[in-house]
Write a protein that binds this DNA or RNA. Structure first.
Length: 583
DNA sequence: GCCGTTTTCGGCCCGACTGTTTTCAGTCG
């Protein structure tokens, strides 16, 4: 009946917010936009929250919106929404997302010309009718048309990995300049969101050097076109991925407040400022100020900005207004997992299936470039035909090969693993007899993504030899939304000592952050893996760790921050549980 | 529509930029 009720409701509330914007009911619009954001980031099926009554504890959802959620659950519709839709031309809901197309502008055009479709609107922009309106003009119209073009082009967001490579490259180039006192990525890229719209970079320098820094930036060889350039800001298009990069220049003594402000998220900042306000303070990108005296009390570093408002510093990955502000107020910020905590990679493919390097090449490469204590080779099982998955006999030969290479290397570095397929009925693609001989078993779904896979996953977790569920939601950016997880899966994961994977492939980034957060709360162990198919893939560990941090994971939540002996213990505990249960 | 150790009514983040304006409205992040 409902594919993904949270997403559906979030979309409806988003639209209702837009409609209220159009109707110039500003604050009601704000409430619905907030509700949309909240519902969208709930890890749980919202029906559970209604049932348990926990919905009351969520800030931003009041009785009015709760009633509408209930109505939608019961009837599949919200009457108020159906009524509201009649008041706005359908095309306008989408158009409100286009830069330059605000509610006031659209409403005016609608009233003046009776225009209600996108097509008619474009025509009126082009034939000069809109430009002739009082308060409008040629330039505004040109900007609207440009906004439309940009909107269509940048609908596709960059993957975090891609954006990070570009961002880091530009940071290095800016660091070369001696006038640059500080330089850092900002926006969703600094928060390491799974996908990124445009790339924001901040620079601190003395006021007299601003122009020099901006000139240097806009004349980099990577720049295809300079879109805008002022005293404090420049926007360019770069050749790589045809992306917009914004550079903002700050004064050194405003570095902390500027960085805090431009990192966002918007929701985090709004909440943060709200708290500042309640304490008689005002926060802007220029600093924290005492409202009464106007005195500036912080701004140089982010730490002092947060501290001035009574909060601990908050890692950028957590700044999504998902409770981190309350935690920081209470002084209870967790110490998040770091890249340097990682002791090994437990999901790797070789030439035995669809990887492009031999096991030996992989082992030597990793030993040389990473300070890992172990890796697990986990080629596919036979159900994955396209990858020429391994059958029972292949697995035995695979194990012999790994023994041979370990012996050659002189250390027991490579663990013998497999990525076994979870078949449609939840059974596994290799028998227990084989699985029991292996050091590490990843169980994954590679077929029938578009259905509820809860039963399949639970059945797989109940196999005593399965260590971890690979890419648990099956999502891939740009092609598949993935199937819903459930509380039940987390519960069973915890009970059975089965870990869940945080797959760091840039197109997967799976588990999603909100599920990681939930798993951490419940105490489910996680494994950050690159799912490497070539040597360059091992670098994905960095964004896997970022993703874990977005889900508030600490070192102890991540299994591959432990020594191999400790991992063995985790496995043994699972097997012990099952010898009791199964008898 | 939401929210409350200054409030159950009266607020709702803050500042820059742009274009169209002689003092500001609209949009954006």
């Amino acid at each position: 009946m409902y594919q993904n009720i949270n997403k559906e409701l979030a979309k409806i509330f988003e639209n209702m917010g837009n409609i209220y914007d159009f109707l110039e009911d500003k604050f009601r619009a704000l409430a619905y936009h907030r509700a949309a954001q909240i519902v969208d980031s709930l890890p749980d099926d919202i029906r559970n929250l209604i049932q348990s009554g926990d919905i009351h504890h969520i800030r931003g959802i009041g009785s009015g919106i709760e009633e509408k959620i209930e109505e939608y659950i019961k009837t599949g519709k919200i009457r108020k929404y159906e009524d509201l839709k009649q008041l706005v031309p359908p095309d306008f809901l989408e158009l409100m997302e286009v830069p330059g197309f605000g509610p006031k502008t659209l409403k005016r055009i609608h009233q003046e010309f009776g225009i209600s479709t996108k097509e008619e609107l474009i025509k009126a922009l082009k034939d000069g009718r809109v430009a002739s309106l009082k308060g409008f003009g040629e330039k505004k119209v040109q900007n609207m048309l440009k906004g439309l073009e940009l909107y269509e082009k940048t609908q596709k967001r960059l993957l975090l990995w891609e954006a990070l490579q570009i961002g880091k490259m530009l940071l290095e180039k800016l660091k070369v300049l001696k006038e640059v006192k500080n330089v850092e990525l900002a926006g969703s890229l600094r928060r390491r969101k799974e996908t990124v719209g445009d790339i924001d970079i901040l620079v601190a320098c003395e006021e007299k050097d601003r122009q020099k820094v901006l000139d240097y930036f806009t004349s980099l060889e990577d720049v295809k076109e300079v879109i805008a350039k002022g005293d404090t800001k420049a926007s360019v298009m770069i050749y790589e991925k045809d992306r917009q990069v914004d550079l903002r220049v700050l004064n050194p003594d405003e570095w902390g407040s500027g960085l805090q402000y431009f990192t966002g998220s918007k929701e985090h900042n709004v909440h943060f400022r709200d708290i500042a306000k309640s304490k008689g303070l005002k926060v802007s990108e220029y600093g924290v100020f005492d409202v009464k005296t106007g005195e500036k009390i912080a701004g140089k570093t982010e730490e002092e900005v947060y501290k001035a408002v009574g909060l601990q510093w908050i890692p950028p990955e957590m700044r999504e207004d998902r409770g981190e502000i309350e935690l920081a107020l209470e002084g209870k910020m967790p110490k998040l997992v770091e890249l340097s905590d990682i002791k090994g990679d437990l999901h790797i493919h070789s030439t035995w299936t669809d990887g492009i390097n031999t096991i030996e090449e992989i082992a030597k490469f990793v030993l040389k470039n990473y300070k890992y204590e172990y890796i697990a080779l986990t080629d596919h099982s036979k159900a994955v035909r396209v990858a020429h998955g391994l059958n029972e006999e292949d697995v035995l030969r695979y194990m012999e090969e790994i023994d041979k290479i370990n012996k050659k290397l002189g250390i027991n570095f490579i663990k013998k693993g497999v990525e076994v397929d979870i078949l449609p009925d939840g059974s596994l693609d290799l028998p227990d007899e084989i699985l029991s001989k292996l050091d590490w078993v990843v169980a994954s779904i590679h077929t029938q993504f578009n259905r509820d896979n809860t039963d399949r996953i639970i059945k797989a977790m109940e196999n005593p030899y399965v260590c971890v569920i690979g890419h648990p939601t099956g999502r891939t950016f740009g092609s598949r939304e993935g199937y819903q997880l459930s509380e039940e899966i987390l519960k069973v994961a915890k009970e059975t000592n089965t870990a869940l994977e945080i797959n760091a492939q840039p197109t997967r980034m799976d588990l999603p952050d909100i599920w990681i957060k939930k798993a951490v709360e419940i105490g489910v162990k996680l494994v950050i893996s690159t799912d490497s198919h070539s040597l360059s893939n091992f670098g994905y560990m960095e964004i896997g760790v970022s993703l874990a941090r977005r889900g508030w994971a600490k070192r102890e939540d991540i299994l591959n921050t432990y020594s191999w002996e400790e991992i063995e213990r985790f496995k043994q505990e699972k097997r012990a549980k099952f010898s009791i249960i199964k008898r």
